[in-house]
Nucleic acid binder design. Structure first.
Length: 138
DNA sequence: GCCAACGTTGGC
DNA sequence: GCCAACGTTGGC
């Protein structure tokens, strides 16, 4: 059974539009320098789906991505300690789901986005996945 | 731009 | 191996 994830990115650094521009070939999710986030990526399988979340500017889930390559070295990591997965854009949410909405909804009280907001790559339960998709109009 | 939360580093 | 200092993230 495949799992669900959430990838955070500051749109100034890497935006959904840039993700879409990479097309089916996707791109490496570089730059993760956190061991807990690394652990999440090591658990990912090709075909797993994730939300693309814009932090800081927008603060909303804006799209769906698919993991297309499992954990492998991150060329931007000089220490060699971390790594990345490759992801591609699948589809945008017709209506972005904002952090404000997620925080206001009791269903998401135990979601990592709320309880551990600083984790940049996090797992999402099937319940949360379906609820946010529905809020986003998918 | 500020600051709280949290992770990491480095001295002991 | 502990813990204080420091750096970074990210909401506000």
């Amino acid at each position: 059974m495949s799992a669900f994830w959430l990838f955070k990115s500051e749109p100034d650094a890497w935006s959904w539009d840039q993700m879409v521009a990479c097309g089916a070939a996707g791109t490496g999710w570089t730059g993760v320098r956190n061991h807990l986030a690394k652990k999440q990526m090591q658990a990912m399988q090709a075909g797993d789906l994730g939300f693309f979340y814009h932090s800081n500017v927008g603060k909303a889930v804006v799209g769906v991505v698919e993991v297309i390559k499992t954990f492998h070295p991150d060329p931007t990591d000089e220490s060699g300690k971390f790594g990345m997965v490759d992801v591609r854009a699948v589809e945008p949410l017709p209506r972005p789901v904002t952090l404000e909405e997620i925080k206001a909804d009791a269903r998401f009280a135990d979601m990592a986005l709320v309880t551990n907001m600083r984790l940049s790559v996090q797992p999402v339960s099937a319940e949360h996945w379906n609820a946010i998709r529905a809020l986003g109009g998918l």
